[in-house]
């Protein structure tokens, strides 16, 4: 089980760096269509910031910010966004994930609708990847024991 590190240097530096890392991850997600990156890479960077929080502040502090319930909600919310956009395209008489058909309900030209549709897909992928990366690291590091048992 990872203990929270009592070292003040590492704690302070990671507290300073984590918000900037998350901001950069949001930039990578939002600029996925014309620079390297996208939903998966941005999600991995978001997950890495949470992992940095976990190895610095320990599992109990991190669990206070990101509970098991919110990990489950985020991982399924991403899948819901992805498949929801796909099914809306099906309902508008297009193929699955045919973003051009979204122009009817968004009131934009089909080209802009394609760009917005890809952005929505990438936000969904980012949510799921972040939650799953954090969940994998947390479960492996705690050795299968839930953190409540560790306190006693």
């Amino acid at each position: 089980m990872i203990r929270s590190s009592e070292d003040i240097i590492i704690r302070t530096v990671s507290r300073i760096l984590v918000p900037f890392i998350q901001l950069f991850a949001l930039y990578v997600i939002a600029h996925g269509h014309y620079s390297p990156g996208g939903g998966f890479q941005g999600g991995v960077i978001l997950g890495a910031s949470l992992v940095l929080l976990l190895i610095t502040y320990g599992p109990s502090d991190t669990r206070r910010h990101i509970s098991g319930k919110s990990v489950a909600v985020f991982s399924s919310l991403g899948v819901l966004i992805y498949s929801g956009i796909g099914f809306i395209c099906l309902l508008l008489l297009g193929n699955y994930l045919d973003y051009g058909k979204l122009s009817g309900i968004l009131h934009v030209t089909p080209a802009e609708a394609r760009s917005l549709g890809i952005l929505g897909i990438e936000i969904g992928v980012g949510f799921t990847v972040m939650a799953i990366m954090f969940s994998i690291f947390f479960d492996i590091s705690s050795g299968g024991k839930p953190p409540e048992d560790e306190k006693e």
């Binding site: 990671s14 890392i21 950069f24 990578v28 890479q41 960077i45 890495a48 992992v51 940095l52 190895i55």
Partner: peptide, 13 residues
């Protein structure tokens, strides 16, 4: 930038 970030987190871990 991502390489620098992952290098830092990897060494800490």
């Amino acid at each position: 930038l991502v390489y620098a970030l992952l290098n830092f987190i990897g060494v800490l871990a």
